[in-house]
């Protein structure tokens, strides 16, 4: 079994260190901004100055998550990111094209996708398995699956999460590519401690996580996953989805009254399904009648991510 022992999210919503946030948040307004905690509580000042948004969010969430769970060292650190460290990538790309001669290396060093996982391991002195998945909208699900493989292989506590950051050029790019998102483009990070055993503060359990690249039929894929887990659409108390798949959900037998488009809450970023997971877990703590939750991530419609959650037995 796979248990979620702790969760931490920094986003455009008041999610950080705010249990019960799911009951108080409303859909994001167009001009929403990232709600940053006092990072100095988590990151040493000298280091903090050099860190981009995505790195600050990732390290702070990771430390918060480990603190909540009372775990000093996880057995592994697994991160998913769709677009990686955009701020530093753009900065170095700019330098590389505009500056003649020797360039400052910091933005290059911090441009690689594995910078988050690397900085987390550095900040806590962790020598375990360290991995970064980057499969656009399915990056987080792939990270979760990897964590579950590790737990099956005998590890006990895995720090798994996702992060993506917004930079201004993204808005310009989406206009030019004729993509006019109905929700704002946002930045966020979410980290979770996944454990092989139930603990006193366990929040929920993950029944299954599956990814389908270049997916054929979304309804058939959902039904097959539910059947494999010996459940069905009627048993679902909450379905969180992203992407234009309301019809697919109806065909799969999902009650529209129980489904909710999470990108209205999270905004749009490649790993927004990590926000959905934290939101689901938080809802389950507030409302004990929510026992079975499915997250359907079709942010990019050719790629489907499915995450099935179950409440802990009382």
């Amino acid at each position: 079994m796979f248990y979620i022992s702790a969760a931490s999210t920094i986003s455009h919503q008041p999610t950080f260190q705010n249990a019960g946030f799911s009951g108080m948040i409303v859909p994001l307004a167009a001009e929403s901004i990232l709600i940053s905690p006092d990072y100095k509580r988590f990151i040493e000042a000298g280091l903090l100055r050099r860190m981009s948004k995505i790195l600050r969010m990732s390290v702070a969430c990771s430390k918060d998550c480990l603190e909540q769970a009372g775990v000093e060292q996880p057995d592994a650190i697994v991160v998913g990111t769709g677009l990686g460290c955009l701020q530093d990538t753009e900065k170095f790309l700019n330098h590389s094209i505009t500056i003649e001669g020797l360039l400052p290396p910091t933005s290059f060093i911090q441009s690689t996708h594995n910078t988050m996982a690397g900085q987390i391991s550095l900040s806590i002195g962790n020598h375990g398995y360290n991995m970064t998945h980057t499969q656009n909208s399915l990056s987080f699900e792939h990270a979760l699956q990897d964590a579950m493989l590790l737990l099956t292989e005998g590890e006990n506590d895995i720090l798994a999460g996702a992060a993506d950051e917004y930079i201004e050029i993204l808005t310009e790019i989406s206009c030019h590519l004729n993509v006019y998102p109905r929700s704002p483009l946002t930045s966020a990070a979410s980290f979770f401690l996944l454990s092989s055993k139930e603990k006193s503060g366990t929040l929920a359990q993950i029944k299954d996580v599956a990814t389908f690249g270049l997916v054929n039929s979304i309804p058939d894929t959902i039904l097959a996953l539910l059947a494999e887990n010996e459940t069905n659409a009627d048993a679902l108390d909450l379905v969180l989805f992203a992407g234009n798949i309301s019809n697919d959900l109806t065909i799969a037998g999902v009650d529209p009254d129980k489904s909710l488009d999470y990108k209205n809450l999270s905004g749009i970023y490649p790993t927004a399904s990590a926000f959905a997971l934290h939101y689901a877990v938080d809802r389950m703590q507030q409302d004990k009648s929510i026992r079975n939750v499915l997250i359907c991530n079709a942010l990019i419609k050719s790629n489907l991510g499915l995450t099935l959650l179950q409440a802990i037995e009382a």
Binding site: N114, Q135, L214
Partner: peptide, 9 residues
Amino acid sequence: SGYINTLST
């Protein structure tokens, strides 16, 4: 199709 993944370390 199905399991398509990319790692970047």
